[in-house]
């Protein structure tokens, strides 16, 4: 099933890796470079199926972005996966508390990424 996935990350490398893996699996990918950009893309794009977001970003970080999505009447039910590393349990918890649906541990391989998307997207 093809999904529309919004990826929010300030690292072009990560954005491109996400895009490669997701488009390979037939998903449509939207990209944003930070939280503020993410909210703009969401406002323009309307509904997306899944959001994948980084935590550490300029202008608006991942927590702020998750908070924004969860408080939006339109997008609050959109699943959000955060990108974390295994060494950041506190960040994962904080993201979860902010309303993240799940997480993807970097470095990720495409199979794990797609599994995570499948687990949160109808």
């Amino acid at each position: 099933m093809s999904k529309v996935v919004l990826t929010v990350d300030d690292s072009k490398t990560i954005r491109e890796m996400l895009r490669a893996a997701l488009t390979d699996a037939g998903h449509t990918v939207l990209q944003a470079e930070d939280g503020v950009h993410g909210t703009e893309v969401l406002a323009n794009a309307g509904m997306v199926d899944v959001i994948i977001t980084d935590i550490n970003m300029p202008r608006m970080d991942g927590y702020g972005f998750i908070g924004h999505v969860r408080s939006s009447p339109v997008h609050r039910a959109t699943p959000i996966l955060v990108l974390t590393t295994e060494s950041e349990p506190a960040k994962k918890q904080r993201a979860k508390d902010a309303g993240a649906t799940g997480w993807i541990v970097k470095p990720f391989d495409p199979a794990k990424l797609l599994a995570a998307v499948r687990r949160v997207a109808p």
Binding site: K3, V4, T28, L30, Q31, A32, E33, H37, E40, V41, N44, A45, G46, M47, V48, D49, R76, A77, T78, P122
Partner: peptide, 27 residues
């Protein structure tokens, strides 16, 4: 709410394309 998300996400490819183009323009 999740159900709403599903139905809304199933919009036409054209709409999705528009959205992609807009994003591209923004970046």
């Amino acid at each position: 709410p999740a159900a709403v998300a599903v139905s809304d996400a199933l919009k036409s490819p054209e709409q999705q394309k528009d959205a992609t183009a807009e994003t591209a323009q923004k970046s």
